[in-house]
Structure formats: structure tokens, C-alpha cells
Amino acid sequence: MAARIDHLVTSGTFSLDGGTWDVDNNVWIVGDDVEAVVIDAAHDAEAILEALAGRTLRAIVCTHAHNDHIDAAPALASRTGALIHLHPDDLPLWKQTHPDTAPDAYLADGQVLTIAGVDLTVLHTPGHAPGAVCLHAPDLGTVFTGDTLFRGGPGATGRSFSHFPTIIDSIRDRLLTLPPGTEVRTGHGESTTIGDEAPHLEEWIEGGR
């Protein structure tokens, strides 16, 4: 059975620095008919379980620990027995949402997670958050970027734990070096490609100064 990517959108709120905003989040499921991993368990564990359709969940991978990307992770883990994976640099953010729990495993740059015969390589891409990661799946022609890179530019860096020059370095050095045809599947909104975004790097830098 060939691996595939399933997608659902869940809705909730994002809260940080005393503010709260309504958001729609992309939840990505990578796997086949037997097993899968979930990338960013956002808002609605029941909806994610329904989308899994009885498949064995091998892991819940968090691209970063802003609450809207992790709020449903413990409930989903409890229902499935899957381990929650997070980069350790985002543990302070995790604790803001889940002070009484911790991730089960920590991600490292260059680590490879394999599901349904497909490798997902962890790329540490700080800037939007200290422990932000992207997941590159070359066999699927895809990179899952969380909130590091969107259609039209970098993720937000105007709040605590974020830094604009760092996210630009991450995008330039870790993402724009991927093949131009690589599909960029984001944490919010529409997908794009590396080739569509790469020409705009200098515009982003000028706009962020």
C-alpha cells in the first residue's frame, strides 16, 4: 500500500502574550491504510480520530508548541497510545498549555521518522518558535512547515519566543535549498511550493527590517 497524505482543518483559538485569536489549523496525516502519523494535533481530537479511520497512530509530531498546534495532543495520545514528539527547545511553550504533562519524546535535527515506508526528516527551523521544526518527505515531494513558511512568506515573529532574523536564516538555509517542486504544506492556509516562495526571500528581508 502506498503512503498518502490526508488533510483536515480544525478550528479553535491561539493564545499568547495575553491575547487570543480565532484560528483554523491544518492537520496533516501521513500513512497508508494500516498506520499513520499525525502532524500537529490541533483543537479536535475526535475529528482527528475520525480521519484516522481505525489506522494505528504511530506518533503525534508537533511542528512547534504554540497552543493551537498542541492543544489536542494529550487527548489524542490518550485515546491511541501514540507518543507525542516535540523539539526540546519548545518545552517552555508546551508548559504554558499543558503544565502538568510533558511530551513523550524529543525531536532532533536530522532525525528520521519512518511511517508506511516513507521517511520524514526533521529539520530544526527556529524563528517562529525556538523549537520549530519542519518535516521533509522527499518520497512524497513534500515538506510540512508548520508556521515557519507560508504561501507568501515567513511565519509571524512579533510575539514572545520568536525572532525574525532567525526565521529568515531557517528558511534560507533549510527550506529554500529543497527542490523547487517540493510542495509546502503549512500549518494554516493554502499550500505552496519551494519554487514559488524562493524568489521572494529578499522582499521578506526588506519588509521585516
Rank of each mutant, 00 (worst) to 15 (best):
S162A: 15
E50Q: 15
N25R: 11
D6N: 14
D71P: 04
G195W: 11
D169Y: 07
V184M: 05
G18Y: 12
R172W: 02
S162Q: 06
G131M: 02
I167A: 10
T125Q: 07
G110D: 09
A82L: 01
I48M: 06
T20K: 08
V143K: 01
I115N: 05
L120C: 10
T142G: 12
G152N: 07
R151N: 13
E203D: 15
D100R: 03
W21N: 14
L83T: 00
G110M: 08
A137P: 13
G18C: 11
D173N: 09
W94T: 11
T101P: 04
G187H: 02
L86P: 02
D22S: 14
F150Y: 14
A65R: 03
I194H: 12
L83H: 03
L140C: 14
G152F: 09
H85R: 03
G141E: 13
D33G: 15
P103I: 09
R174F: 07
F14Y: 02
E35C: 02
A53R: 01
S191H: 12
P130N: 05
E206L: 09
L175E: 09
A129Y: 00
L57R: 02
A75Q: 14
L57F: 08
A59P: 13
H98L: 06
T125I: 08
A105P: 03
T192M: 13
A59S: 14
R151P: 06
A51D: 05
L176H: 15
P88C: 07
H43M: 06
G19W: 07
R209Y: 11
V122Y: 03
T80M: 02
T101H: 04
V133A: 00
D32G: 09
L83Y: 03
D71C: 03
I167P: 03
A82N: 05
G81W: 04
D104N: 13
S170I: 10
V38Q: 11
H200K: 09
G19P: 00
V38I: 10
G131L: 03
H85I: 06
A108D: 04
Y106F: 15
G155F: 08
A82Q: 03
R55S: 10
A102Y: 00
H85Q: 08
E183D: 12
E202P: 15
H128R: 00
A59E: 10
G158L: 03
A137V: 04
D89G: 04
P99M: 00
P180V: 14
H136K: 01
V34S: 01
L176V: 15
R4D: 15
R55A: 07
T10E: 04
R4Y: 12
N26P: 15
I168N: 11
C62I: 04
A65M: 06
A105T: 08
H136N: 13
E202M: 08
P199W: 09
T20R: 06
P154M: 04
G195F: 11
W94M: 05
T193N: 05
P138C: 00
L107H: 06
L120A: 05
A51K: 09
T192A: 14
P103Q: 08
G110Q: 10
H85A: 14
L149R: 01
T121G: 07
R4V: 15
F150R: 01
V38W: 08
A41N: 06
H124T: 12
A198S: 13
D89K: 04
A51L: 12
A42I: 06
D68A: 14
A42F: 03
T148M: 08
N67P: 07
G110P: 15
S78C: 09
H98R: 06
G19D: 01
T177W: 05
